[in-house]
Amino acid sequence: MANPINTFLLTDLLKGLWTTFKNQKPSLVVTEQYPRERPPVMERYRGAPRLNTHPETAETLCISCNLCALACPEQLIVVTSERNPETRRKDLTNFTYDTSRCMFCGLCEDACPVDALELTQDFEMATFTREGQIWDRQMLEEGPLPTEYRH
């Protein structure tokens, strides 16, 4: 700026123009065309919840200990269970998880002693109704149906 020749020849402005001009290279484009290409999320991503089942027996891993419900700051997990008279263990009857209030902080996941509750990489959880946001045990175990887009 101090140099009057530079001031007169608008060097500072030309420098800026050159910078933006260089940015036109098509390989520099960073846009992700979202519904068409889904961005990969990282392995530890905290997204849609899932209630894990045993891979072979398809029985739930959850032992109905209620720790996740206690850990949750929003108190949005409700675990219902009944005591099995034979095994003297608690059997899971239902498990509701209100994704509309969840802030995906991961505290429930950390609290679960048997890694039954897990936050997965799925992030498409929009629904048309508020009720649809409340996931029950079946939804949690099977996962939401993958969204399909028509162009």
Binding site: L13, K15, T20
Partner: peptide
């Protein structure tokens, strides 16, 4: 380059 020297 875009901002610091730019007179505006």
């Amino acid at each position: 380059a875009l901002l610091t020297g730019n007179r505006i």
